[in-house]
Amino acid sequence: MPNFILQGPDAFIFEIDPLTGAITPKSWFLADFDDAWNANEDNIYEMSAIDTDNTDTVAGSTDFEYRVTPTDAMLVEASAPVALTTFTISGPDTVIFEINKFTGEVTLQDWFAPEPGDNWDADENGTYNFTVTTTAPDGTVTDTPASLTVTPTGEYIFDAPAPIVLPEPEPVDPDPVPFGTLFSLSGDDAIVLQIDETTGAITLNDWLTPDPATIGMQMKMVFMTSTSSLPRRMAPWSRLLRRSRRTPKARSW
């Protein structure tokens, strides 16, 4: 019987089924391309699934990567080809730049602001040279020379490949009850009513058709809410309930 465990620099973020070897992120982890938690901070989470009951250490171990992109996240074997075109940067002046791995957009490091006459490039001429390397999913590699020139007037002139525009990720619906404010009903007669737990709106259950002959019944309910006051839309119900306690006469619902 297999007994799988996880090892590796980023294994603490994931859990593995000891019998099947299925790997899933832990419940507290939400993949975010702009907030990398992996050891290398490159959005590639590395780990190895190891079957401790397999005497063949090679056959009993598989390397995995959890790859997070701006629009997706996927668990694949480390040997799997990259599903998207990726970009890297190299050259003598790259220390002042950073590149988006999936769009190819080149930007200055936030700590660096070039100024005319204060040249940090290798040639000290105000032209910062670098190379953008594009790797396609089929393995094709393309190198494109690029540069940033700082003019005597302080203008920045980027000569670099245009970045890819990725689709925006699907928006996440906000929690309709962000602070835990919930409404509920209780009481002897609350069974005939229903309440919207987020707005406090009260309606009759669809199976109830009020009978004028019995409308004088007393409905005793307790509104449970963590807010200091009830919605205004509940006020008509409150007045109706008070009237029903005073008189048994039939009233229109």
Score class of each variant (00 low, 15 high):
N3R: 15
L6N: 11
G8T: 11
G8C: 11
P9A: 13
D10S: 07
A11D: 11
D17P: 04
P18T: 11
L19R: 13
I23C: 02
T24R: 14
K26H: 06
K26M: 06
W28I: 02
L30V: 13
A36C: 04
W37H: 10
N38W: 05
A39V: 08
E41T: 11
D42Q: 02
N43L: 03
N43G: 05
N43M: 03
I44L: 08
E46Y: 04
S48E: 13
I50M: 14
I50K: 15
D51I: 05
D53V: 06
N54H: 08
T55Y: 12
T55A: 13
S61Y: 02
S61I: 02
F64N: 06
R67G: 04
V68T: 08
P70S: 10
A73I: 06
V82E: 14
A83Q: 14
A83N: 09
L84A: 11
T85W: 01
I89H: 03
G91F: 12
P92F: 11
N100H: 14
N100E: 09
K101L: 01
E105A: 13
Q109N: 12
Q109V: 10
Q109Y: 02
W111H: 10
F112P: 01
A113S: 14
E115T: 14
P116A: 15
G117T: 10
D118W: 12
N119P: 03
N119K: 09
W120Q: 14
E124I: 03
E124F: 02
G126W: 08
Y128L: 11
F130L: 04
F130W: 05
T131N: 06
T133Q: 08
P137Y: 02
G139I: 12
T140H: 10
D143E: 15
D143R: 09
T144N: 02
L148T: 03
T149G: 00
P152Y: 05
P152T: 12
D159L: 08
P161Q: 01
P161F: 03
A162Y: 02
I164C: 00
I164Y: 00
V165F: 01
P167Y: 14
P169H: 14
V172F: 05
P174R: 00
P174K: 00
P176F: 00
P176K: 01
V177Y: 04
P178W: 00
P178V: 00
P178H: 01
T181P: 00
L182P: 00
L182I: 15
L182Y: 13
F183C: 07
L185F: 08
S186D: 15
D189E: 15
D189A: 15
I191Q: 12
V192G: 03
V192H: 07
Q194D: 07
I195H: 07
I195Y: 11
G200Q: 03
I202L: 06
T203S: 11
L204W: 15
L204K: 10
N205V: 06
D206R: 03
W207F: 07
L208R: 02
L208K: 01
T214L: 10
I215Y: 06
I215A: 09
M219E: 02
M219D: 01
V222A: 14
T225Q: 05
T227C: 06
T227W: 12
L230W: 11
P231E: 09
R233I: 07
M234T: 15
M234Q: 13
M234A: 11
A235I: 13
W237C: 03
R239D: 13
L240C: 08
R242G: 07
S244T: 09
R246W: 07
R246P: 00
T247V: 09
P248K: 13
K249M: 06
S252A: 15
S252E: 13
